[in-house]
Design a protein around this nucleic acid. Sequence first.
DNA 1: TCAGCAATGCAAATCGATTTGCATCGCGTA
DNA 2: TACGCGATGCAAATCGATTTGCATTGCTGA
Lengths: 361, 361
Amino acid sequence: MARARISDVAAAAGVSVTTVSLVMNDVESRISDETRQRVREAARAVGYAPNSVARGLRTQRTRTVGLISDQIATTPFAGRMLAGAQDAARDNGYLVYLIDTGGDAEIEREAIDALTAQQVDAMIYACMWHRIVDVPQGVSAKTVLLDCRPVKGGYRSVVPDDRAGGTAAVRELVAAGHRRIAYIDTDDGPIASRLRHEGYLEALAEAGIPADPALHITGDTSAHGGRAAAEVLLDLPDDERPTGIFCFNDRMAAGVYIAAHRRGLDIPRDLSVVGYDDQQLIAAEQDPPLTTVALPHYAMGRWAMEVALGVRAEGDEDATHLMECPVIRRDSVGPPPAQVAKPNRRRASHTERPPLAAPDR
Amino acid sequence: MARARISDVAAAAGVSVTTVSLVMNDVESRISDETRQRVREAARAVGYAPNSVARGLRTQRTRTVGLISDQIATTPFAGRMLAGAQDAARDNGYLVYLIDTGGDAEIEREAIDALTAQQVDAMIYACMWHRIVDVPQGVSAKTVLLDCRPVKGGYRSVVPDDRAGGTAAVRELVAAGHRRIAYIDTDDGPIASRLRHEGYLEALAEAGIPADPALHITGDTSAHGGRAAAEVLLDLPDDERPTGIFCFNDRMAAGVYIAAHRRGLDIPRDLSVVGYDDQQLIAAEQDPPLTTVALPHYAMGRWAMEVALGVRAEGDEDATHLMECPVIRRDSVGPPPAQVAKPNRRRASHTERPPLAAPDR
DNA sequence: TCAGCAATGCAAATCGATTTGCATCGCGTA
DNA sequence: TACGCGATGCAAATCGATTTGCATTGCTGA
C-alpha cells in the first residue's frame, strides 16, 4: 500500500490540493475554519504525511544538514559532539547526514559533493582534535567548523578554550597550597599542547610562582608516556620534586598513578594530580578518581549546529568561539605533604629510565 | 551563482535535456559517441552535478539510509558500528541519516516518521547492547536490526556470538593449563551475560572440568564490581582459589587487576585473566595488556548495512546472524602457578568485604 | 437591480530530474 | 520513384509538493 499523497487528501476532503497544502502548512487566512477542520480530518483518515523530497524540490530547502567528520570511530569523545549537534538539529526539525571521511581527502571531496547534490541546507565540518584545517573548496558559506579552526578565516568555528582550561587546572593545585607544580606535556605538538602550557604558565604567574623549566616534561600521550615522564619528575632531589602534577591528558595522568603507586606514593596524600579531557572510563575509574578538566564536546556540537542552522545569532561571520572547559573535582588533589615525603623506593636507581627527560623546548 | 541544471548543459551542448540525461546516466545506445562526447564536455564546462532531490522524486529512490540508534553518545563501542555501516553505505553510493533517540520512544516514533517522509530506501535499527527489542510500527520491511533481536521475528538482525565468545575465552585458560577457572559475571542480567555463561560452561565441559558454582560470582559491571568479586574469589582457601578468571567485561577485568595487585599477585604469573569487549583504552592499556574477546562492532555494522541495501544476499528474511567474536591475545594469560602461591596478604581478613558473594542463581 | 468588494477556493506553473513514445533523417532496395 | 528501416534525438508526461494569480460566490450599499 503506497503512501497517501496530497491529492488523496484533497479527494477525501472534497477540496483542491492547493487547499490541503494551505491548511497543512498553516498558511494564514484564505481558508475557512470549517474547511480547515475537514482537511485535517481527511489527512488523518488517510494517514497523510508530506513527502519531504517533493517539498524539498519545490521549496529549495530540505531541512537537512551534513556533518562531515574526520574520525568518528576512533575517539570516545566523538559521541558527545555528535549528540550535541544531533539534539540541536532535532530541536529545530532538521535531519543530519553523517559522513566519516577517516581523514581521507578524496573521500572528503566526494562527501562534500554528495551532500551538495543532496541540497543540504548547511554543513558542519568536524574534527576530533582541536586543530587547524584547510577547508576544502565547495563547502557552502554556511559551513561551521567544529573543534578546529580554519587556516585563513572565512568560517565560523568553535573550539575548547584550552588555555583557560590549563589555567583552571593549575589553579586547583595552587589553591590546595602547592608551589612546585609540574606539567607533563605531549611531544606530539597539537594546538592544545601549546595552549594548555600557556594556561599553566599563566596560573603560575598569577600565583607568583616562578616557572621551573625542569618541571615541564614531555612524553607520548599514552599511559606509558605519562608514567615515564612521572618517573623522571619523581627522581628529582627532594627539594626539587613536584608535589602537584598537571597532565596534558587523563591517559598520561593514569600513567602518573602507576608510577606513583610503584613507589608507594599515595594520591593525593603524597602527590596531587590533575588531568585533562575527563575521559570516560579513565578519569572517574582511577583509584582515587581523578580531578580533571572536561572537554565541552556536547556544548560545542550544539553550538555548531545552532549556528549552522542560523538559530543562534552570532554577529561575526568569521570568528572562533572559545568554549569553556569546566573543572571536574574528584579526589586526586589534596594539600601538599607537610614536608616532602621520602618515597620508599623499591630500587635505588632506575637503570632502565626512559630517555624522555626532554626539558622545555 | 546558482548550481547548473541539466537544461544548462543541454543548452551548452546544443541538445535536449533528454539527451543529457541519457548520456549522464550511461543509458545504452540511442546516442552517438560524438554527441556523448559533446554532452560530457558541456557538463564539465558548466560544472554540472545532478540534483539528488529532483532525481529522488522522479525515481522514487533516494540512495539514502536511516540509522536509528538508542545510544550513540554514551558508549565507546558505537563508533565502530557506525563506521562499519558508514563504510558499507559509501561503498555502495548511499548516504546515511543518523538519529540518536536516547532510548526515548516518542523521539523514536518521530525519527521513523521523519525518515519515512524523507523517503529513505532502508533503515537500520541499532542498539548499543545486545538486547531484545519491540520494533516500533512503521519501520519498513527493509529494516535491519543491529546488535539486537526482535521480540517476535519478522526482521533480519545481527548480534555478536556471545556464547561462542565465552567458550573461546575460557578455552584460552584451559589451553594454558588452568583447571580452576572462575567467571565473574554481571548481575544486571543482559542477554550477553547468560550467553557468555553458557559458553563458559561449555568450555569447561569439553575439557572435562566440573563446574563449581562457587566460582561463578557476580558484581556490577564496573571496575569496582570486578574488584569486589575478585576479592571474594581470592579469599577462598588455597585449594579452591581460581588460577584463571574470565570476566564479563574488560572493566571488571581491570578491577581484578587492582585486587590482584593489592595482594601482591602478579598477572599472569600468579593469576591469569581474560576479559570481554576489547574496550579501547582499557584492555590494551592494562599492565600487562589484557587478553580479551573482541566485540565485532565494525563487522556487524557493515553486515547490517549490506543486508539493508540488498547487496549481501541473505536467504532468510527472518533470521538472526551471529557474528564471531575473535580472541585478542595479549599478556594476561600464562600457565597456572606450579602450586598455588600463598599471596602475601596485607590483612588477615577483609572485614570490609562487600556483600556481593552471590552464588549461582 | 446592480456595481463593488471581501471571502474563499481552484487551476496551473514550478522545482529539476527521468523516461516513454514519437518524429525525423538518410540510405538501401524493389 | 516509393517504401521500409535503422539510427538518432526530442517533446512531453511524470514524480509530489508549493504558490501565484484568477474565478466564483455572496453580501452590502446606492
